[in-house]
Nucleic acid binder design. Structure first.
Lengths: 343, 343
DNA sequence: GTGAAAGCGCTAACAG
DNA sequence: CTGTTAGCGCTTTCAC
């Protein structure tokens, strides 16, 4: 045995030892552990004392075996690690998930997988009864395996799946992107802006589509032209490119609704490059209320989405599912406007 | 039963069923699963066929119970989620860990904990025999619980613990920050720079200390003055502040060695603010080779650290520890210079 | 080479 | 209220 091995000198105490020390049967100890009401006050005290003395912790494996539940849930991230971890939005979502799970007996298994198709190992893991449920967080939604995962396992998705891969029985938590976008554009309109363009995200992401729709809603309602659109890719560089294209094609532009703060941050750079002042010449409203919103010289007015709450609700929904309850299939979270300098 | 419950129609096949289908005993099936050589070729074939037919996957809990191993390891992140996930460096480390673990039978349990002191739940979890080992990734290192965790559980740290909390028996993987910093400054010297200041990270992080030391090494070796130091905090805003202070106090400055790309990115902004050109007036070398290095208008010359490899080696070291081997207590990874425009 | 039997630590009827 | 009795699904001596 190597010196690196750090085995517990006498092994971990078992329920049986607790029972012996407390002078009761194992069943009684089990009842105490599981908070059964069928235990007399004095016996309860004795058992709890024994548990504390021995520093007893129930063995998860043994428990799982008999309970036929693994007490663990998978956090599936079908996304490039850089892309995922680099996004403050996801950071909050994960934090929310973790927070909610902290109040439960479940643990989180991190499954980083390739966006287009999870590895065989991950598939077997997910389908092989190694987790009781799964949480899928990603902007993507084209994957077949994951899309149909909900048929074999309780799954909650973060963000609405795209129309063609969504299954009727799916559970997902979404942000009201359309209403949020609309709210942002309404703010621009209220500020007196009349020539409002938008920079969208990729066309294959529901969030992009919905935000563009919201932009259009507000413009139509205000009787304004909704013809100025540039497609971005949710990156800063993309925001720069799109903004340049937009201002060059439409010199009369007086406002920009940008589908993400990161892209908006690029827009700020591009506008400066062209010598346009924000918000004087061009007002900007972003989306996310990410750290990027306050990173530049001019604070970004933006639509905040409750990323952490998204995580909490995702976890909560899955937990309810696992508890045999009937949570809503779709939960839509509200956004709100955060006013800063850019609009 | 709610409609949300997605139980497998007939339950998951057990080893016993495989045995029945294959017409052998459970012991034999077990041997096949575990790759025992004491199985005849024909029996092996029959059993494998049965396994494939039934799509059998061994039950982890049952296995863990008898093996007295959980086959799972904790990824402890004693860091604010934003701070952690927002750092591309960590993203790579996690990717590396995940990659390495994909080739093993272990799964990763994500444990997000408060930087200063893990929750009771996390402590119990870690100490309660729920994982076979732990990987601790963080810039911080002042926590007592984590620092001593290695005494109760096989643990591998990412980054050298600070002197006063490091235990002799600890295992950790580190980057040769000092040599890397020195290399960066040498590059500046070779480029003809003579008045080279540095922006450091927080004084309580080993990486900061080492990088400052490396900066000093190079300057001393070149016979240059190592008196211009500004303390940063590894944030962009901190980089801006430090740079402003530096250029105002030392107008003769012709180069900056900045302890992180994020801070260097702030330096770029600050220099522009002061009307100083990069690299003409002031050359800059950063550290990390993170996405920030290529985000701005001028590409950042920087010291690349092998973040992903760090993760791989961390996982690998822990795996070896768990296998009863004797991996090195300290592994130091090399850095290399990446030349771009800033120096 | 293969099977029979025992048991890992825990929970869940079933009695009392 | 509490103890007794069976296993959960798997690995592992120990015989054959």
């Amino acid at each position: 045995m190597s010196d690196g091995t750090l085995a517990h000198p006498m092994g971990r105490p078992t329920l049986e030892e607790v029972a012996r020390v407390a002078g009761v049967s194992r069943a009684t100890v089990s009842r105490v552990i599981n908070g059964s009401p069928r235990v007399s006050a004095d016996v309860l005290a004795v058992v709890e004392k024994a548990i504390a003395e021995l520093d007893y912790v129930p063995n998860r494996a043994a428990r799982s075996l008999v309970a036929r539940a693994t007490m663990s849930i998978a956090l599936v991230v079908p996304e490039d690690a850089h892309r995922f971890f680099g996004d403050p939005y996801f950071a909050d979502v994960v934090q929310g998930i973790s927070d909610r799970l902290d109040d439960s007996d479940y643990v989180l298994n991190l499954q980083l997988t390739h966006p287009s198709s999870p590895s065989e190992k991950t598939k077997r893991y997910l389908l092989g009864g190694n987790v009781d449920g799964a949480l899928v967080v990603s902007h993507h939604s084209g994957d077949h395996f994951l899309a149909s995962l909900g048929r074999s396992l309780p799954v909650v998705f973060g963000g609405r799946p795209l129309g063609d891969v969504a299954n009727p029985g799916d559970y997902y938590i979404d942000v009201d992107n359309r209403a949020g976008a609309r709210r942002g554009v309404e703010h621009l309109v209220a500020r007196g802006r009349r020539t409002i363009a938008t920079i969208t995200g990729p066309a294959d992401m529901p969030a992009s589509v919905d935000r563009e729709l919201g932009w259009r809603d507000a413009l139509t309602a205000a009787g304004l032209d909704a013809g100025r659109v540039a497609r971005g890719d949710f990156t800063e560089a993309g925001g720069i490119r799109a903004t340049l294209a937009l201002v060059d094609a439409h010199p009369d532009l007086d406002a920009l609704f940008v589908a993400s703060d990161l892209m908006a941050s690029g827009a700020l750079l591009a506008l400066e490059e062209r010598g346009l002042r924000v918000p004087d010449d061009v007002a900007i409203v972003g989306f996310d209320d990410s750290p990027y919103a306050t990173r530049g010289k001019v604070g970004l007015t933006t639509i905040a989405q409750p990323a952490q709450q998204m995580g909490v609700v995702m976890a909560d929904t899955l937990l309810r599912l696992l508890a045999g309850e009937n949570p809503p299939h779709v939960t839509t979270l509200d956004t709100h406007l955060v006013e800063r300098d850019s609009a």
